[in-house]
Design a binder for these strands. Structure first.
Lengths: 346, 346
DNA sequence: CTGAAAGCGCTAACAA
DNA sequence: TTGTTAGCGCTTTCAG
């Protein structure tokens, strides 16, 4: 049984399809006699009419779909973000098409191409790099874009991020309050704004507290992964620098750090305190539970989606950037530094 | 700059749009002179022509999209499944529209409705209940459906599941080999086939090993969650039954169990061994690491997607059910039972 | 083998 | 206020 079309409804209501269209569309309903509207609505109801967004899209060049570009759905910070987006777009009748880029620019280009072939009305992008020519190019082609979690240099589009600066300040304040004086930072990859903001905030906070901030205390990871965190921790240990706390650029980096510390016979938090960033799920069940910064990913997604819809409604409006509050979550991976220090194989 | 249409390509190649369409479509290419095909292809290339799937869909009543129906993307077993689906459909030019039902049948119906309004070519469904009228109804309307992870009573459609039976046998064999004789089971909600299969396999394996299988050793959870697992564990402890091992219906249930055991002053694995099911991410980082059954969710998704594409190609073909191997992953949450038993507050 | 013509379902001019 | 007409981009008869 073929589903009812607008023509069927019009026939049943005894009007022209165009009138039926107007009656059913809230935008144009005002142009139609109230009685006629009722008649059409009743006919639509009784036939179980569902408008066909495909046909509509062909005509209006709008598809009520949007593309969501994320690095990797299996990274636990992204499912809440995606759900936040979906929760906010659904009331507007929008549907999300989600793609994974796996951090591969070729793949990203190809998959965004396929989104555009499907004529998505715009993109919410979580893969932004500080230097990201593809996004600049899309922007130049007037593709509506909202950035989440990260920003892109020279790209004047709306963005929604967590308050990384404040989060990092809180982390450092927490550690200094515990009495730590030599705090190391395993920074994220420097091609992402997130890593940069967190690293800068780290340095600023450490210097503010009049603590040492020599270069050996910061190691950069080339990816946001446990492996990269492990690698960086090995470097840190190898450098012979003294430290009693490690601030991970995110939770995964912190997890990698914990692995290597444990392999090196160092216990957390007795020998070294460790912190993460994001508060991904199940972190509370590790032992020790990881002290971290909770970033409201669901809300970030929802807010980004709202901004996206706004962009479509008022394209001329100046791009806003929204920062949502992040909060320190203290667990067992941070404690007062012990008397004994561990550097140089001590 | 408007993107090139088929008409543009035809014009550039000096042929009729219909010819260009035939030349570009692999299905119909055979009907066209090889030289003409080349000419059209070159023209398409140089204009950067991308066929418009929307317009095509309007004509062919196929959209090269499929709906993916899952309970909750933030449950860590689903992202790999979704990625598996996407990896398998992408080469065929398909795009997934994913929805979350949150276990709510109303929501499920509404969201599946919206998928159908978008004319998805079919559904891959991970929310199957043993009694699931909506799916039966859809099936009756000839909506192509493939089930993943679970089966539905009386629904004759293809399905892809992990080998729960074998997985459960391995779990019980592992525990009996360690010397456990009183093994409890926190079964999943009995309205899902997965819970049923696992519970039946549990009872069969226990009886096979000539171990006690009295009713008090099995408690059913009403959801697949840590909270439900905690609740069930409290019941189990409250019943006063003696046991030295608990087989969780899935990992989340096992996590809830661990919480309550720990609250009750029982240590795992010293006092009680605990196992899960699924091997969700980061389970290896808990302490103790959870012994569980690895279910290949990515592969389940990929295989389901392949079957889905097959269904579209040969609708007449009889529905197959595929079972993918699951494997026991032994970690620190299982050990030999200690001499002291813990029942009745011992 | 290729062109002509129609139409998928809907909406936006325009006309009445 | 409603109807008429045309067309979004594509595929698919049917002729030629």
């Amino acid at each position: 049984m073929r589903s009812a079309t607008l023509k069927d409804v019009a026939l049943a209501a005894g009007v022209h399809p165009a009138t039926a269209s107007r009656a059913l569309n809230p935008q144009t309903r005002g142009l139609v006699n109230a009685d006629t509207v009722k008649r059409v609505q009743r006919a639509a109801e009784s036939l179980g009419y569902r408008p066909n967004p495909i046909a509509r899209g062909l005509k209006t060049a709008r598809t009520t779909t949007l593309g969501v570009v994320i690095p990797d759905l299996t990274n636990p910070i992204f499912p809440p973000l995606v759900r936040g987006i979906e929760s906010a777009i659904e009331p507007a009748g929008y549907t999300a098409l989600t793609i994974n880029t796996d951090g591969d620019l070729e793949l990203e280009r190809a998959r965004i191409d396929s989104l555009r072939a499907r004529h998505v009305d715009g993109l919410i992008v979580a893969t932004g790099m500080r230097h990201h020519p593809l996004l600049v190019e899309l922007r130049a082609q007037n593709v509506p874009i909202v950035l989440v979690n990260r920003r892109v240099d020279g790209l004047n589009v709306p963005s929604v991020v967590g308050d990384d600066e404040r989060g990092m300040q809180d982390v450092v304040a927490h550690l200094t309050a515990l009495g730590h004086t030599r705090i190391a930072h395993l920074a994220g990859p420097s091609d992402t704004s997130t890593a940069l903001v967190r690293e800068r905030a780290f340095h600023a906070a450490v210097r503010e507290a009049r603590l040492p901030d020599d270069g050996s205390l910061t190691v950069r990871c080339d990816r946001w992964s446990a492996e990269a965190g492990a690698e960086a921790t090995r470097k840190l240990l190898g450098s012979g620098t003294d430290f009693t706390a490690v601030v991970g650029g995110n939770d995964l980096i912190a997890l990698g750090c914990l692995d290597v510390l444990s392999d090196a016979g160092l216990s957390c938090p007795d020998d070294v305190s460790v912190t993460g960033f994001n508060d991904m799920p199940f972190l509370d069940r590790l032992s020790p539970g990881l002290t971290t910064v909770r970033v409201p990913h669901f809300d970030i997604g929802a807010e980004a989606a709202r901004m996206f819809l706004e962009c479509l409604r008022e394209p001329a409006r100046v791009p806003r950037s929204v920062v949502l509050p992040a909060s320190l979550v203290i667990r067992a991976s941070t404690a007062e530094p012990s008397a004994r220090r561990h550097a140089r194989g001590t």
